[in-house]
Nucleic acid binder design. Sequence first.
DNA 1: TTGTACGCGTTATCAC
DNA 2: GTGATAACGCGTACAA
Lengths: 325, 325
Amino acid sequence: MPTIKDVALKAGVSVTTVSRVLNNRGYLSEKLKKKVLQAMDELNYRPNELARSLSRSRSNIIGLIIPSVAHPFFGELTGYIEEHAYRNGCKLLLCNSRQDKHKELEYIDMLRASRVDGIIMGSHTLEVEAYQQMNLPLVTFDRQISPGIPYVCSDNYQGGVLATTLLIEKGCRQLAHIGGHPGLNILSGLRFEAFAATAGAHNIPYTLLHTDHNSFDVEAYERLLAQLFHEQPGTDGIFAGSDIIAAYALKACREHGRRVPEDMRIVGYDGIALRSMLGPALSTIRQPIEAMGKLAVELIIRQIHGGPVSPQYVLPVELEEGATT
Amino acid sequence: MPTIKDVALKAGVSVTTVSRVLNNRGYLSEKLKKKVLQAMDELNYRPNELARSLSRSRSNIIGLIIPSVAHPFFGELTGYIEEHAYRNGCKLLLCNSRQDKHKELEYIDMLRASRVDGIIMGSHTLEVEAYQQMNLPLVTFDRQISPGIPYVCSDNYQGGVLATTLLIEKGCRQLAHIGGHPGLNILSGLRFEAFAATAGAHNIPYTLLHTDHNSFDVEAYERLLAQLFHEQPGTDGIFAGSDIIAAYALKACREHGRRVPEDMRIVGYDGIALRSMLGPALSTIRQPIEAMGKLAVELIIRQIHGGPVSPQYVLPVELEEGATT
DNA sequence: TTGTACGCGTTATCAC
DNA sequence: GTGATAACGCGTACAA
């Protein structure tokens, strides 16, 4: 691979001049510029980003830690994050934590060692201090760490209200919520807080079911659903914590002979693109996934440039009614 | 951030010594080793991977170019690739090409500039020369470039035979295949070659439908399905090019009042984990997705070490019968 | 307007 | 066993 030296030699100038045309810095005659550009072209020269990064102590790499890209929501989100990172001249280093504290810690370490310019945390299983200590631009999804670390989320509470209200308006008399484990300041917990509050306000009885770990565990969902049908057979409305869970609820209904929406109404959360492949159109609370991904990237970049960021960014959700309510 | 110099200073040794304990190279007394390790610990020192990479001209980064992580198959595959890259001490740089030649070229350029140790190509829209010219460990999925560039794929032909045979054995009299565009030496084209050959051998009439671009285009699938129902109403068996397409076929059947499997039998391809969220269990040809991801990483690493690699790696598929046949 | 020389943090090649 | 010192490829004061 040719280096800047080779280019300088071929163009008959110094490396400084080459570096200048590379970065459009300082004044330089058109003539030399042409010559240098031509030399670059002939050698098919590409500046070594490693050396560049080392020299400017800036890598243009953003780290992304999520539970798993295989989960449709995170897959979609990751796609948007990558797209917008790319548009801003940044590369994306992908890390799947599987919601494992140990793995997450190792990934953070690795990312710091790799001198990434910032980290977008879609998975955050550690204690607050772990994030505060590392002196790096950070953004989280759905988790509040400290005022200095901005978080991006959809309006979880409003989403919970919308979903629950819809179920009640449709005539549901006994509700259930199924979701992941609500711990660690996870803001998605607001969804079922809103659910409980709204149901309570209407004097509608409800059940709360959640998995142990906040991971993507199909079997856990199926177990919870079986449990629900068994222990609360009167349930006629489900607010699912994600569209995936809603899909399994739909499937469970079919297997248990419950008609949707006649016997059971279902509302999901997320609004993933894949929901369109389900049989009936799923009613759901749509998060602005692309906007969230884009914003996360922008917040990292803004922090890199020392720009101001707010502690929180709550994006609006939208109720999308389908055929399951 | 502390550097190796700071550690050396604190431990009262030279940077060479620190580097030695860092890499377990050469002989060094236990005493100094302890001291250095302690200094590292106290400073919370992490070696700068950028400098390391520059010095050894080896970054331990693998580039991955795929159409889109948002597509379930690639999302799942990416998850496995990341996992195995990580296990081998490599990081993963993610690139979504959207099957865009221009973007793919830019990504390749960027990855080369970033001095990645190799590239796994899940998307490959360029001409053969483009890949041959770059002197870098490469692995492709489902595309044959040249003997020096190994490719990983499932046994597409066998998969096509299994799927088609199943449909015929179940009594289908008129078949259809729906898939992506078969061009550019894409080996997945073998699926419908096998389909056509098998159907032909049994004197079963069939239709071939495929999208223009090999991308993940929901609307195109729905359009093709509508077209199929309209133009070939007698079709009673569909071999879909992916589980996603199969899911839309299933949905279309429901919308057109066709019962599955009574009126229409459907077989998918891929065996993505998400298929379990569909209503009825989908019959499909299961690719060993994890094995494919793992193998791709290993092949890159083997090439880095100058190890021998075969030109092709065809992994076995498995017919999984569900409720749609 | 252009070139020299040094620094970025590590590794590797020599000496001691 | 341990320590200077020159690469690795590039950016950038500073000098010319």
